[in-house]
Design a binder for these strands. Sequence first.
DNA 1: GCCCGTGCGGAAACCGTATCCCATTGTTTC
DNA 2: GAAACAATGGGATACGGTTTCCGCACGGGC
Lengths: 362, 362
Amino acid sequence: MSQRRTSSDAGRATIRDVAERAGVSVASVSRVLSGNYPVSEELRRRVMKVVRDLDYVTNAHARSLAGGGTPTVAILINNITGAAFAHVARGVEGAATLRGWLSLVGTTGDDPERELALVNLMRQQGVAAVVLLGGAYDYDEYQLRMARFARSLDAAGSHLVLVGRPPLEGDVPATTVDYDNEGGAYAMASHLLSAGHRRVLVLPGPAELTTAQGRLRGAERAFEAYGVPFDPGMVRYGPYDDEHGYSAVETALHETPDFTAVLAGTDVVAAGAMQALRAAGLRVPEDVSIVGYDDIPLASQLTPQLTTVHVPYEEMGRVALRAVADRREGGAGRRKGTDGDHLVLGTHVVVRNSVQPPSTRR
Amino acid sequence: MSQRRTSSDAGRATIRDVAERAGVSVASVSRVLSGNYPVSEELRRRVMKVVRDLDYVTNAHARSLAGGGTPTVAILINNITGAAFAHVARGVEGAATLRGWLSLVGTTGDDPERELALVNLMRQQGVAAVVLLGGAYDYDEYQLRMARFARSLDAAGSHLVLVGRPPLEGDVPATTVDYDNEGGAYAMASHLLSAGHRRVLVLPGPAELTTAQGRLRGAERAFEAYGVPFDPGMVRYGPYDDEHGYSAVETALHETPDFTAVLAGTDVVAAGAMQALRAAGLRVPEDVSIVGYDDIPLASQLTPQLTTVHVPYEEMGRVALRAVADRREGGAGRRKGTDGDHLVLGTHVVVRNSVQPPSTRR
DNA sequence: GCCCGTGCGGAAACCGTATCCCATTGTTTC
DNA sequence: GAAACAATGGGATACGGTTTCCGCACGGGC
């Protein structure tokens, strides 16, 4: 009633149409096309000609129902336009394409409901893996939720991959691809400290986000290592966007104006912070040094170019895909809980022009 | 031989498993789940309980084979990490999600071979539409190639949508969603001219790219309208990236150093140009004014914030999806060549802080 | 009390492809 | 020259759903 095929709807050609028109059986056409069975040259020519004439392509749904089919990987992401995760997506997509895999993309918009709906949708699609990108909100429910996803997917012959999130606790069938978040922050803060900065404004990001927590922890550890007391009053949480960077600096300039450097949780936050400093008549890095995190293209487009922590986002994407591909080839029956299900990639500081020893002027 | 199911592979639960376990027929389960047929409360409860127990989800492939299924839209893009087209992708994806549609993403990497392969792949997937993003290279072959795509997809009950590309000539079953590219460039150039600039360095982009051509044309028209002779020697073609912006300005500072403004084909190019100017000891906008095109987030993150042309990328994505959705609801049999298959969205100048009347100093 | 209409559940026919198994033909070997 | 064999094509079936067509049981009206 709601949907009906009109007779005028030619629809797409089926393998039967091809077989009929070529005067051969359906099985033969299938064999010519998949090429995994010996066929005579004559048959191949006849079939291929009709295929070209009809502009026939096989129906992927039917094919995957019948057993064959292209493996598909689903990429779930909060926000496509975030540069960092766009790079991960590119890594996954690129590696997938290289193997002839397909990639589906869905955005969750930070909504747990949509996340659930999307995971189920992907389960319906029979995807080979679901890759979940981005820092997680560290609510109690998170672990349970992800564990449930992992088990559901696993039971359906699929697999959950967490990228840029903390690994799951316990014996959960999921793979985690992570980077040395805390270590990067440690190195970055050390860089500032060794340049002589002592009063540092820290903008870690949203307090509940695991990446922000790790970056803050790294900074604290660096202060400790340098024997410099860490002042919690210099920490200002807020979203990972330039507006927060701007307003946080603006406020700090009133409340704790003695800082000589800004440790931003993200390059984008650093960009906002830089603007606020400029608006206040302060020069970067002469008056205030500033560093970011992520090393997205923006970092080198700012003036001065931003010293930041390089995170191998694209590589993480590739690694994530390789992990699921390997697991799929190596027999799906691999024992759960085996190692190799938590991969950690390194980070490193990229020194550019936004850091200078503190000026004596301020 | 290559692939075999082990008996230990539980696989996913089928509708038959659910039916059996609930002690009802397969048809009943299907009806409960799709909800388009009256079922007793008792039946619904029984079935839903088993569905939850088994964590069952329907097989999307089987479903779409049998007629139903979620419509899917394919987004084909050169480079996921380009900010502008990431926004279009978000528009498409968001609108798709809103209607319960799915989105597939593929990247072509500017390779015509891959583009062809992907279009065919999407055809196999039976997608409702293929959305092709990005400026096109204006080779002779382009029109033929796209026309072929359009007809193939149309014959298969799908549809081709070109976003940010010039419309196809002749009676081709495709939809184009475009923006007033030339008009935006015209307005942008006029803005510079009315500020008093006469010697303007123009960096339109790659000479063969349709968007670059349009932007250059708009600038020329503005010069004409202002009665200012347009000097072709001030035009420097090159890729849409910051390195080109940098090197073009660097060269120009040697060869034609009398320019007082830079008209960049893209915000990213403008960012590179700005860096080169700074490196040469020139201030923006005091010594040289600079404008971009696209209005991506970067534009407002630079210092000074960039005056640029706003292109409604996300809106274009939404419009593109709406176009295919409408066409699908309104009966696929809509006469080809009817109007409504070329939509043009407006652009406008966003004035920020990177333009100032030319200084007398230089 | 009987008949008929209504509402709900079941059996079966597809959807388009891959593949197993068997039949046929041509080739080789004794 | 016949039999065994390799090569190749065809028929049938399975994949997991949706949907149409039916039949059954139940209830109300006469």
